[in-house]
């Protein structure tokens, strides 16, 4: 059975983009409030081991469906950009936005009575 560890309270993370980084079982884990949902991801960048979750939440440039040429911007606030060299990952899945062969561990989260737990 997964280890259930208290990592934060809902009161710690009231707004979208709020985050808290805690060490759990020797791993630094970050819990984000992403649009009212709580997401846990390792504070570890698979590029060169940078502190991923100390970076900015961001979005992604993409091309319009219409002509696949003009630039648009989507998913603002759903992605975390590493502060070291800007590799960017989906907070929900842990996948790198340009190449999903690069992925950062994510963890299930339980919210109970205003407390947020990560399951390891």
């Amino acid at each position: 059975m997964a280890n259930r560890t208290l990592i934060a309270t809902v009161a710690d993370l009231p707004d979208h983009g709020d985050r808290i980084i805690q060490e759990v079982g020797g791993v630094e884990i970050c819990v984000f409030n992403i649009d009212g949902e709580y997401r846990a991801i390792a504070n570890y960048c698979v590029h060169e081991a940078g502190p991923l979750c100390e970076g900015s939440l961001t979005g992604q440039m993409c091309t319009s469906d219409e002509d696949e040429w003009h630039w648009e911007y989507e998913r603002d606030g759903e992605l975390i950009e590493c502060p070291w060299h800007s590799w960017t990952f989906d907070v929900k899945t842990g996948d790198n936005v340009k190449d999903d062969r690069y992925s950062v561990p994510t963890y299930d989260v339980d919210v109970e009575d205003g407390e947020i737990f990560v399951l390891l």
């Binding site: 590029h47 040429w69 800007s86 590799w87 790198n96 936005v97 340009k98 690069y102």
Partner: peptide
């Protein structure tokens, strides 16, 4: 560059 400046290369879908 593709990995470090993802926003600059939206037209590409692989390395």
């Amino acid at each position: 560059t593709y990995m470090e400046h993802p926003d600059q290369v939206p037209l590409l879908e692989q390395l």
